[in-house]
């Protein structure tokens, strides 16, 4: 009887990501606002990967920790520390 019953086509369209994702997001946003949520706010993200954002935050924390060690060991002056810290926090 076989396992493969659906989905065999001459070619399955895969490069429709932009169109589908945009239309889904538009619908979700409309529903979000219809629920009485303020315009300009967005619903909780259940849609796109957020993997890169936490990684970037972790990276900044690491650099701040390293910077703190450099000041504690006297490699950086307080002024240099403050300058570099501001740069890291500014991303």
């Amino acid at each position: 009887m076989g396992l493969i019953k659906t989905g065999i086509k001459a070619a399955v369209a895969v490069k429709v990501g932009h169109m589908v994702h945009d239309r889904i997001q538009t619908r979700k946003q409309a529903e979000w606002e219809a629920q009485g949520n303020p315009q300009g706010t967005t619903p909780p993200n259940l849609f796109t990967s957020t993997q890169t954002a936490p990684a970037a935050a972790d990276d900044r924390l690491t650099r701040l920790a390293q910077l703190g060690e450099l000041r504690a060991t006297g490699v950086l002056t307080d002024a240099e520390f403050d300058q570099q810290k501001a740069l890291i926090l500014a991303g």
């Binding site: 529903e31 949520n37 619903p43 909780p44 259940l46």
Partner: peptide, 8 residues
């Protein structure tokens, strides 16, 4: 946490 997941 499921608010906004509906797209109809």
């Amino acid at each position: 946490q499921w608010q906004g997941a509906y797209s109809g």
